[in-house]
Design a protein around this nucleic acid. Structure first.
Length: 474
DNA sequence: CTCCGTATCT
DNA sequence: CAGATACGGA
């Protein structure tokens, strides 16, 4: 390891007043710096200030970690000059996720600083970072939470709802907010969801649950949602989505894979899954076309026809049944799939026999019948074959199709050998052992620098300047 | 536990 | 209505 130098105050753990410790312990910092020495020293200082710290060297790695559904960072501190050039990308991603960002740099560059702030950074700090600066960071996190809270309060006032803020309620609100800010808390919400379902089914009484939640009306939720995580699927974003879909090919279109190939910072698997669902059902239009597409031909777009509800879909498929499909049907490749005609007995209401047209495929490629289990029955899901032969693929994106018609004829498998940058990142991920105490100056517990800090790094070096300078967003 | 697909919500 | 979320199941 290396020497830390002599800047540690005695009993570093006492650098903040006790009242702040609780707050600080709740702050999880994602620290990003390719200058390994800075990374380590800053991490140690952060730990001394009782923050939870995760260290990475590259912005791209950090970006990937932010995308992880498990991430719950409250603050990102990153060297803007990441050698992988992902500094601003990371900034953008974190800002989109509602996570405060503090940028670090060895450069005393006003232009850089202004740019950072304009792009949503909270602070621009010229290195070296000092303990005094770090001690105060939790305040930025809190301030960010509070500003959201204020906004919520304001909106509540606007909508005439009870304004019960203050005291205990206030704290509760902030915590709830933190859930939104923090990141994906699906798991935590699951119980609530189950409860909701039970309530809907009348299986449990609805008593105390109402108060705060109902006060926050839809507009507020929508606003918060918009501010934080709402993703609009622009034509461009959809293009990336379709690129990924194309690379994967029919039968391999899974949200996680698509997400990986899209390489869009901040985008989550669930968002992709949601979009995938829309596209599969032909329920998505580019923003520009929406107003005019409202009541357009109610195509036989669902998987069920009017009389029956059977839904068979190949796992990972990307079918499309709108009018465009007809065009595809005429595509040479479209007619290649040999189809068998088989009959299937399905315990329908009346126990009739239904007929399904489908191409040959392994039975294990069939996904499953879906929909409420008590409605499983049906007839021909559609006159259009749902399962094009291998090598051909239906696209919702007609523009894309038209542009790429020729290349598509060669099949959908695209350059699968090429490694995505994300995979490359994954390859380079290393989790270093937690125990770094050898470099830790003695302090009360001697264990501040331990379990809470994880490092994702390899070695490199860059020597920072000597004068700290902070530029702050107001 | 992770991930998927579908239903449902906002 | 687009996008987010809930949730059961693989």
């Amino acid at each position: 390891m290396f020497e830390l130098g002599g800047f540690w105050p005695n009993g570093g753990g006492n650098t903040s007043s006790a009242s702040c410790h609780t707050v600080q312990r709740e702050v999880h910092v994602l620290l990003v710096d390719h200058d390994f020495e800075c990374l380590i020293s800053t991490a140690k200082m952060l730990e001394l200030c009782l923050y939870k710290v995760t260290c990475v060297e590259l912005a791209s790695t950090a970006s990937k970690m932010l995308s992880s559904e498990k991430s719950n960072f409250n603050l990102v501190m990153a060297n803007i000059n990441s050698p992988d050039m992902h500094g601003y990308k990371l900034l953008q991603q974190a800002v989109n996720m509602g996570i405060p960002v503090i940028l670090l740099s060895v450069e005393d560059n006003e232009f850089l600083a202004t740019g950072a702030l304009e792009n949503g950074a909270l602070l621009y700090i010229k290195k070296p970072v000092t303990l005094d600066i770090l001690k105060c960071l939790w305040q930025h996190v809190e301030r960010e939470k509070m500003s959201i809270h204020k906004e919520k309060g304001r909106l509540m006032g606007m909508t005439g709802a009870n304004n019960n803020m203050g005291g205990i309620e206030f704290r509760g609100e902030v915590e709830e907010e933190n859930n939104i800010v923090g990141s994906n808390n699906m798991k935590d919400n699951k119980h609530k969801g189950k409860r909701n379902i039970l309530e809907r089914k009348g299986l449990i009484e609805d008593e105390e649950c109402e108060p705060e939640h109902q006060i926050i009306d839809n507009k507020v939720r929508k606003r918060l949602c918009t501010r934080r995580v709402y993703t609009e699927w622009t034509r461009e974003l959809h293009g990336k989505f379709m690129d990924a879909v194309r690379q994967l090919g029919d039968g391999r279109c899974f949200p996680k894979e698509i997400l990986k190939r899209m390489k869009v910072p901040g985008l989550t698997r669930m968002q992709v899954a949601s979009h995938l669902q829309k596209c599969r059902n032909d329920n998505w239009r580019p923003p520009e076309e929406r107003k005019y597409q409202q009541n357009i031909v109610p195509t036989a777009s669902s998987d069920a026809d009017s009389s029956g509800q059977i839904k068979l879909r190949r796992f990972g498929s990307m079918p499309c049944q709108n009018n465009n499909s007809l065009l595809f049907q005429e595509h040479p490749k479209a007619s290649e799939g040999s189809r068998i005609h088989f009959e299937k007995d399905i315990p329908n209401d009346g126990g009739q026999t239904i007929t399904i047209n489908a191409p040959i495929m392994n039975s294990n490629q069939l996904y499953h019948e879906s929909g409420p289990s008590n409605v499983r029955s049906g007839s021909n899901p559609s006159s259009y074959p749902r399962y094009p032969s291998d090598g051909f693929f239906n696209f919702l994106d007609m523009d894309y199709f038209i542009q790429n018609c020729s290349s598509m004829q060669q099949g959908s498998a695209m350059d699968m050998n090429q490694k995505t940058s994300l995979e490359a990142i994954h390859d380079s991920d290393q989790v270093y052992p937690d125990q770094q105490n050898s470099a830790m100056p003695n302090s009360d517990s001697g264990s501040h620098w331990s379990s809470e800090t994880s490092i994702f790094a390899s070695n490199s070096s860059e020597t920072g300047g000597q004068e700290t300078k902070i530029t702050s967003r107001v």
